[in-house]
Design a binder for these strands. Structure first.
Lengths: 234, 234
DNA sequence: TTCATGCTTCGATGGTAGTCGAAGCATCGG
DNA sequence: CCGATGCTTCGACTACCATCGAAGCATGAA
């Protein structure tokens, strides 16, 4: 029985922690690049590449080339269904409290994802921007409203400079530790940079963790208060 | 990320070939004993025991003691759902042809499953019995029709003796190598015994493989010809 | 009690696959 | 054309885990 029977094949693909993280990240429905997935899964690019090759040859994901990047998505609704049932199964069995995502509490609170803020703080930020009408979320993606643009300008973001860039201004990014969306894209990057410039936060060298200064934390909570009812994760 | 996140845990459990075989065998809905499962999975009792402990602690199976034996069943409908979707997924991805089950061709053709015939021959037998109206398959299970009872009697099966037994007369059993149903239950056992008595086949000592004699093969094909359109596997 | 059966635990072995460093290719921008 | 970025391939290392032999425990039968 050393010859892998079909069902075990697919299950074994999901069974590896790194691949499971990749698949979970893809559950957002968004297409993500290999490097983003590597970051989300907490492995290096080489490892992620190897995993992605296996996932694709196993029929769990599909890849489409677009310009310079490769975008990976889940292959079918069946894959989504399996992942969701597995999640619910794990939850029911009490394996929910298992630490998903970074074990470091600080890292869970705030960290860098690609180049924008991630973690609980980032989800709070995203929730506020949606609730205040700065962002509108549609099927097609996220767009910055006029009032949102004004707010960003007031916060010191140079939107004109961002408009010239190739990368999308706003992008939804599934948060690993929070399992909810936060803001990526060039605007997400600009916000992180701006907050750094304001002295609100500092990156921890050699780590993805970001620490807020006490003053920065207060200012952040004041500027982007936690929205009452945020968009649902699942 | 070494800490296994929930979803990977359950998936990894299904991901091992031996465990996948065990779970597939349990998909019949019947409670099976560890030794039976060891047989089905093609591993020794010790190995199966280890696997069963993991499956149970992972919440995929439940065990209930009854008299001298232990009976294992799948834990919930969710587990069934996951296994079924995984099967369909694997089929869709062309991994159907992958050798599932015993690698020995003879064993694939015919073998013993608990005490009844399994393998390609068994699927042929089951297909004929359904096509000829000897069996009716309903949601509730399989029942032997009057004409079927007559046919069994003509074949030399003592149905009256079987009626006294506790175990069900007919049982659907998912075939490991063929991924299609065959006939289990006391009738399935009786059929195997009868064919053995007729000299159609012989069990290979120390193996689950069953070999048909040339004469027995001809008689089998004559008595239970392959049904034209069998029930679809995938 | 003693024996037999069925299942589990222990200990040792081997194979498999996940992981990363470093180098090799593409693709795009200047 | 050159340089940079993003991704893949190659090679080697490591660790985990499935597997089995043999012994240890139950449970039920004689």
């Amino acid at each position: 029985m050393k010859e892998g029977p079909d069902i075990a094949r697919a299950a074994a693909l999901i069974g590896d922690p790194a691949r499971a993280n990749i698949l979970t990240a893809l559950l957002s429905g968004k297409a993500l690049t290999p490097s983003e997935l590597a970051r989300e899964a907490g492995v290096t690019a080489q490892t992620a590449s190897s995993h992605l090759a296996k996932l694709e040859s196993g029929g769990l994901t599909v890849t489409r080339r677009q310009g310079r990047h490769r975008y990976v998505t889940l292959a079918s609704e069946e894959v989504v269904a399996v992942l969701e049932i597995l999640t619910s199964l794990a939850a029911r069995n009490g394996h929910l409290r298992t630490r998903t995502g970074p074990r470091d509490p600080d890292m869970r609170a705030a960290r860098v994802c690609y180049n924008h803020l991630a973690g609980a703080r980032a989800v709070q930020l995203y929730g506020h921007l949606c609730a205040s009408g700065a962002l509108t979320v549609t099927q097609a993606g996220i767009t910055l409203t006029d009032s949102g643009a004004a707010a960003m300008d007031a916060f010191g973001i140079d939107l004109a400079a961002l408009a010239g860039k190739r990368s999308p201004l706003c992008r939804e990014c599934l948060d690993w530790s929070e399992r909810r969306s936060h803001l990526g894209g060039s605007l997400g990057r600009a916000l992180l940079t701006r907050m750094e410039d304001l002295g609100w936060l500092a990156r921890v060298p050699g780590s993805r963790t970001v620490t807020f200064t006490p003053r920065g934390q207060r200012a952040f909570d004041e500027t982007f208060p936690a929205a009452r009812a945020a968009t649902e994760p699942a």
